[in-house]
Simulated assay, not measured.
Amino acid sequence: MTLTASYEFCRRLNARHGRSYYLATLLLPAWKRPHVHALYGFARYADEIVDSFTMTGDRARALEDLTVRVSGALAGGAPADAAGDPVIPAFTQTVRSFGIDHGDVTAFLRSMRADLTVTRYSTYDDLLEYMEGSAAVIGTMMLPVLEPLPGLAGKAREPARQLGLAFQLTNFLRDVAEDLERGRVYLPMEDLDKFGVGPADLGGAAPTPALRELLAFETRRAREHYARAEEGIDMLTPSSRPCLRAAVALYGGILDRIEAARYDVLGGRAAVPKRRRAAIFVRHLLAASAADRAERRVTVEVP
């Protein structure tokens, strides 16, 4: 597998499994997209290992093997086996090119390991600790590719974390029933107790009034994360802003759909309609094209 093929594999993973986010990435300058796809592709690849095997031992061994290969590749070891590691060449190239913190990679893999054994979270702080690795570090790994403005990289890190948390919590709300089928409950148990919701209620045919109240509460919490992330968009180079604004509109649109369905996340997966996704893309396309052209403009002075 060539490096080009690895980047293409990651792109296809993004296009297949992250349709809303993939649509937003099309608003980025062409040179940034492969790197965003590489980061998404690695995260999705690890997530598929955690979710796709039937025996915990097999999943644990496969994830540990991936961890060892990634660690070796990032340390400058021998190239990963092409057949077994279609995402690692692109991922490691992107990590090296942008100086992405290896600690973020370690934190992500630690949260993936938690999914093999942890099925409940007592408090929101406990869930945040898990989401630090599963979501917040995805935001901070993406940050160098999206290019903070000079002097703002440090300040932009917290909004990037918050956006990762917002996206992850949105996914948890959308996938309540699907996660329960895997034996997991990501909504904090203290919140279930507060609203009088039992884990079995998350797999019912329709939401109970108590469950609707719980989901409304968690939706407000997700919107708070989006609000904290908002200021970070203008800290990025202009060519990255339309992508982030579109991604926020698309993922925030999932919350809109959940609310419009009166928090019935059990009867079907909440999704932004294709026409709405297209309208969001078109709305930001002009700004993306203009910013890209401006950044390509170079003045050459000949003495």
Rank of each mutant, 00 (worst) to 15 (best):
K32V: 00
G84P: 14
P79T: 01
G18P: 06
G84E: 15
D125V: 09
P79N: 00
A82C: 05
S20M: 03
F91A: 10
A80V: 14
A60W: 09
A62C: 13
G103R: 03
L28Q: 07
V68G: 07
T56P: 02
A15Q: 15
V118Q: 13
A38E: 03
L116M: 02
L26R: 15
G41K: 14
Y121C: 01
T67W: 07
D47K: 06
H35K: 06
T117E: 10
G76P: 04
R44Q: 09
L26A: 13
T117M: 07
I49D: 04
T67V: 12
R19W: 08
A107K: 05
L63M: 02
G72C: 08
D47A: 07
V118E: 08
Y40V: 02
K32I: 01
V68S: 12
R16L: 12
V50H: 00
S111D: 00
L39C: 13
I88E: 05
G41N: 10
R12G: 04
P86F: 05
R61W: 12
K32C: 07
N14M: 10
P86W: 04
D58S: 08
A46S: 12
P29V: 04
F91L: 11
R61S: 13
V105C: 11
R33T: 07
A38S: 07
L116R: 00
D101S: 13
D125F: 03
T67S: 07
V87L: 04
A78G: 15
D81C: 13
A24G: 11
W31G: 01
M55G: 05
R44Y: 12
Y121H: 03
A73R: 10
H102N: 11
V50K: 01
Y21C: 10
L28V: 08
A38F: 03
G57E: 06
H17F: 13
L28E: 06
T25K: 03
V118N: 03
R113L: 08
H102K: 08
L116D: 00
Q93L: 00
D51H: 07
D85C: 15
I100E: 01
A83G: 13
T106A: 13
T67P: 02
T25V: 11
